[in-house]
């Protein structure tokens, strides 16, 4: 694999290289948090030392929260031919790249979802390893290191970034930016790299232990604490919206005012909503909120393993900072362990 360095004094020139490959998007402050936004001013492209947890994950680019999948007239249905622009997303943490790999696996299993794949092919991911905060637990979900799914990946090693090239497009980018990307790595690079890893690993505070949760989900399926969580849960669905691996959507039809043209909209849905499992005639297969919470945690911590070989929780900590009533992977795991 190609590895280069980018001197920090050249960091400000990064934008002018990336913009040749598509729209440049990166975390920008939004209130007290961050959001992936389109960068118009090169000065706004900042590579933060810490891991940046944006409000919404990268999935917002791959499966937009609300978009038209079809248009239709009374005579026929027309597949959307929407042009998807290339987007370069900068500062994507390892856990999120794992999440994108999980989404890709999901969207290509059984049937390939072209709406997702079109967007995935147009997404260029510039990853960056950062220092975790008190909510991160990717070291417990084996998602703190990433091996594939990025085009370039940055490590902050003091006065330069170590840059791993992960794809052909990544290679194109470093060629285009040959004035700032340098193949001559300093002699002490491995020592610096080990130091960085050590510093990162020592920074994890969240000590939630996921060992055995798959079996515990089974053993504790009828435990009382689910009802306590169910009583507390507001069914707001925010956990599923911010989760980087949640994929559920609903589909509805909208008519334009002239009633000659309509659009079939696909938008994020949540298994935490009461009407999620209602069928014709009104029978609800998941009437209780506790049942719906169990579905989500079964899916994240147990079921996904059966299907794809790994849990679909990547330890990003979004459910921790988002849930207004403190129901999240660590609090549930704590209860599972009794």
């Amino acid at each position: 694999m190609r590895v280069l360095k980018l001197a920090k004094k050249d960091e400000k020139k990064l934008y002018s290289v990336l913009v040749n490959f598509g729209e440049v998007w990166s975390p920008l402050p939004k209130g007290k948090r961050f959001s992936y936004e389109k960068i118009e001013d090169p000065k706004d492209l900042v590579l933060h030392e810490e891991c940046i947890r944006t409000i919404l994950p990268v999935k917002k680019f791959l499966m937009p929260s609300d978009f038209n999948i079809l248009s239709f007239t009374p005579q026929q249905f027309l597949t959307s031919n929407e042009e998807i622009p290339f987007k370069v997303i900068v500062s994507v943490p390892p856990c999120e790249i794992h999440a994108v790999n999980i989404l890709t696996k999901f969207y290509t299993t059984d049937y390939v979802d072209n709406y997702y794949m079109k967007r995935r092919e147009k997404l260029i991911i510039i990853g960056k390893s950062g220092i975790p905060d008190e909510y991160c637990f990717c070291h417990k979900t084996n998602t703190s290191i990433v091996e594939e799914g990025y085009d370039l990946f940055f490590f902050d090693l003091g006065n330069y970034y170590l840059v791993w090239v992960g794809s052909e497009i990544g290679d194109d980018i470093v060629r285009k930016g040959s004035n700032i990307f340098d193949e001559n790595l300093p002699k002490d690079v491995s020592q610096k790299y080990v130091e960085f890893r050590k510093q990162k690993n020592n920074s994890f505070i969240n000590d939630v232990e996921l060992e055995g949760v798959t079996d515990l989900m089974e053993l504790m399926y009828d435990a009382d604490f689910w009802d306590e969580f169910g009583d507390k849960c507001l069914s707001c669905g925010q956990c599923t919206m911010v989760c980087p691996t949640c994929t559920c959507f609903n589909i509805i039809d909208d008519l334009e005012l002239n009633k000659e043209l309509g659009h079939r909209r696909r938008y994020w849905d949540s298994c935490q909503f009461k009407d999620y499992s209602i069928v014709a005639g009104g029978h609800n297969f998941r009437e209780s909120q506790a049942g719906r919470l169990k579905l989500w945690y079964t899916h994240k911590l147990k079921a996904f393993i059966g299907h794809f070989g790994s849990p679909s929780c990547v330890g990003c900590g979004r459910c921790i900072v988002t849930c207004p009533v403190d129901i999240n992977v660590p609090t549930v795991v704590k209860k599972l362990k009794g």
């Binding site: 969207y107 979802d113 994929t247 959507f249 999620y276 499992s277 209602i278 069928v279 299907h307």
Partner: peptide, 19 residues
């Protein structure tokens, strides 16, 4: 069996039971 479905092709999630 019957479940709520939106896509029919394993993506929308509504008909999920366990995995």
């Amino acid at each position: 069996l019957e479940r709520r479905m939106k896509c029919g092709c394993g993506k929308c999630g509504h008909c999920i039971i366990d995995y």
